[in-house]
Simulated scan of single mutants.
Amino acid sequence: MQTIPTKAYGASGSILNSLKPMTIERQAPKADEVHIDILYSGVCHSDLHQVKNDWHNTIYPCVPGHEIIGRVIEAGSGVTRFKAGDLVGVGCMVDSCGVCPSCKEKEENYCEGPVSWTATYNGYMKPANEEFNTFGGYSTNIVVKESFVLSIPKELDIKAAAPILCAGVTTYSPLKHWKVGPGQSVGVVGIGGLGHMAVQIARALGATVTAITRDKKKQEAAEQLGAHEVLISTDADAMKAHESKFDFILITIPDAFDVNDYVKLAKRNGVITTVGLLGPYELPLNNMEVAMHRRSVSGSIIGSIAETQEVLEFCAEHHIAPEVQMIKMQDINVAYKNMMDEEVRFRYVIDMQSLKDEA
Rank of each mutant, 00 (worst) to 15 (best):
I158M: 13
K216Y: 05
D215S: 15
L194P: 04
V189N: 04
L175M: 10
A211D: 05
Q184A: 07
I152L: 10
S147P: 06
R203W: 06
G181M: 03
R203S: 15
I152A: 09
V180Y: 02
A204H: 01
A160R: 15
S185A: 14
K176Q: 14
A162N: 03
G195C: 07
A211F: 04
K176L: 11
K216R: 11
A160H: 11
V169I: 14
V180N: 01
T208W: 00
G193F: 07
A162W: 02
P163L: 02
V230F: 02
T170H: 01
A207P: 11
K154I: 15
R214F: 05
V186P: 08
K217P: 00
K159C: 06
R214T: 15
T170A: 07
A207I: 13
S185G: 04
Q224D: 05
T210Q: 01
P163S: 05
K154G: 09
L150I: 08
Y172E: 07
G190P: 01
G168R: 03
A161I: 13
L205R: 12
I212K: 04
T170D: 03
G193T: 07
M197I: 08
G183E: 05
V188Y: 08
A221S: 11
E146L: 13
G195H: 09
A211S: 11
H196Q: 04
P153C: 14
A207N: 09
T213I: 06
R203G: 10
R214M: 07
V230C: 00
G190L: 06
G206I: 08
V189F: 05
T213P: 00
L156D: 12
H196S: 13
M197S: 11
G190M: 04
T210I: 04
V209S: 11
D157I: 11
V169T: 10
A207D: 13
K218A: 05
D215I: 09
V169Q: 02
V180H: 01
L225I: 00
A204T: 04
L156E: 09
S173M: 05
P163G: 00
V169G: 00
